[in-house]
């Protein structure tokens, strides 16, 4: 099955995960790329979503506003992008209801690009989620939102430095004023089409015991599913006893993630471009 897999081909091809997305309730018939929108609660994620899609989803200034997944779309440079707004979460590791929705989509939905909206005034706290997402997904763009507020609070953020440290593009924005949105669209399109290649940051400061445990489990998973894109993260979740991941391992659903090459009858549906 690996015969048709090229360096880029698999991840970039819109059809490779269509089956999984349809399972997650995403209608894919008119879209070329899927973009997931993740972020902490109250970072203006819904505002970014509205700015990107032109929709008027209600936004509110209290944490946990988006409680369901909203969807919209836009076209850019000939590509049609489907945007999925995930519930705002602080983390993907605490297994509460909203986190599961976000986590399932990022892992099993395999979006072409994951945009992580972060609050520039609370960068450190927000990076928690960014680093977790980068453990799962390679193709990501960080949208450094609320730059206007950061400025008002006397904060200066070196977005280039941040991009270099994180290994993914960082776009400063003030979504309420519409600033930075065109650049965000352009950047995420470049990542989606593979013009920009990400080298995401991976965790460096594990304790020796953790590293030993992770390495041992990673070796085991690798021997069973050599093509799995996010082995390390799966190992982390298994070590924490995450029931959804255990279930996915048990049923073999996890294996599907590594097998989703074009031509696989299991995942290629009648989706055509």
């Amino acid at each position: 099955m690996a015969t048709e897999t090229t360096a880029e081909g698999c991840e970039a091809c819109p059809a490779h995960h269509a089956g999984n997305l349809i399972k997650l309730g995403v209608n894919m018939s008119n879209w070329d790329y899927v973009v997931a929108l993740a972020g902490n609660p109250n970072t203006g994620k819904s505002t970014v979503f509205n700015a990107l899609t032109g929709l008027r989803q209600h936004t509110g200034n209290w944490p946990g506003k988006t409680v369901v997944r909203a969807e919209g779309g836009f076209s850019f440079g000939g590509g049609r992008y489907k945007l999925v707004d995930l519930p705002g979460t602080y983390s993907l590791l605490s297994t509460s209801l909203d986190e599961e929705v976000a986590r399932d989509f990022i892992l099993f939905g395999q979006p072409d690009v994951t945009v992580i909206v972060v609050d520039a005034t609370r960068l450190e706290r927000n990076l928690n989620l960014v680093l977790q997402v980068l453990e799962i997904r390679d193709r990501a763009v960080v949208c450094l939102n609320l730059m206007d507020e950061a400025k008002r609070h006397g904060l200066q953020i070196d977005d280039r430095r941040l991009a270099r440290d994180l290994g993914v593009p960082v776009v400063p924005a003030a979504a309420r004023q519409g600033e930075g949105i065109p650049l965000l669209i352009e950047t995420l399109a470049q990542v989606a089409t593979g013009q920009v290649v990400c080298k995401p940051h991976r965790l460096k400061n594990e304790t020796p015991a953790m590293r030993k445990a992770i390495d041992r489990l990673v070796a085991k998973i690798e021997s069973v599913y050599p093509d799995l894109p996010n082995i390390r993260w799966v190992a982390l979740r298994l070590l924490e006893g995450d029931k959804r991941i255990i279930e996915a391992v048990r049923t073999g659903e996890l294996g599907d993630l590594s097998r989703g090459t074009p031509g696989d009858p299991g995942t290629l549906s009648e989706v055509t471009r």
Binding site: Y90, S91, L93, S94, T95
Partner: peptide
Amino acid sequence: GLARRRLMDLG
């Protein structure tokens, strides 16, 4: 449990 994880999520 969740209470502990939540505190850590908040940093």
